[in-house]
Amino acid sequence: MTHSEALITVDNLTMAYGDFVLQKELSFTIRKGSIFTIMGESGCGKSTLLRHLTGLKRPAAGDIMYNGINFWKQPLKKRVQLMQKSGVLYQSGALWSSMTIGENVALPLQQFTDLTEDLIREIVEIKLALVGLKGFSSYLPSAISGGMKKRAGLARAIALDPEIVFFDEPSAGLDPISSKMLDDLILELRDSLGATIVIVTHELASIFALADDSIFLDTETRTMLATGNPRILAKNSDSSKVRQFLSRSTSVRD
C-alpha cells in the first residue's frame, strides 16, 4: 500500500509545561492511511506529543496542520469538528465506568449523529464484533479484563468512522499473545477502514510489526533524533541512540 498524501503535518513544534520545554523543533509528516509510531525513552514526551496531536494541548510554538488546515488557528467550533475526525484509545481504555460497554460505544454516535436508537444499537454491535467483543454490550467495564477494556476502548474510538485513530501505548499491561492480537487488529482495521493510525509505543515487536513511519524523541537533547521507517532506522540511522533503541542493545556505538 502506498501512502503519499500528508494527513497531519507538524511544523517546528515546541512542547512545554510553563517554562519547561519538553521537546522543541519537531517537524514531521503523517501520511494518509499509514501507521505512524512515536518512539522514545520513558518521560521524553511521547504522550504529550499525542495530546498535542489530538488537540488537547496547545503548542508552545509551531503549527499542527490537518489536511493543510492549521488546527490552532481555527475557531473552537471548527477545532471540535476536526477533533471528531479522530478517535483515541487511551492506555487504560478510559471507559466511562458508570456506563456499560455498549453505552460507551454508543455515546459518540448519540451525541454527534442523528441516527435512530435502533441503528445506533446495530452499529454498536458491529463495532463490538469488529474488536471481538460481540455480546459484551451489557457488561460494565469493571466486569471485563484489561485487554478487553482496550478493545472496547478501540470500538469506542472507531465509533464515528474516524479518519485517524490514535493509540497511547496499546500494548502496555498486555501479555504477548493479547498484544500480538491487538497489533493484528490494528493492522486489519487500518486495511479495512483505511484509517490513518498513530501509535505511541516503545514495544519493539509492535513497532516493527506495524509501523510504516516513525519519529524518535530524545530526552537529553529534547528534540527528535530521527524520523522514517523503523526497519531502515534500525540499520542506517545517523544516531547511535536510535540504533540502540531499535536493536534493544546497549552496545551500539557510532
Partner: peptide, 17 residues
C-alpha cells in the same frame, strides 16, 4: 469492497462470553 469483506470477516470471529 475489500474493506467491507475484511470487516465482515472480523465481525464473524467467535467470542467466548
Amino acid at each position: 469492497p475489500d474493506g467491507i469483506r475484511k470487516l465482515l470477516r472480523l465481525t464473524r470471529k467467535k467470542t467466548v462470553i
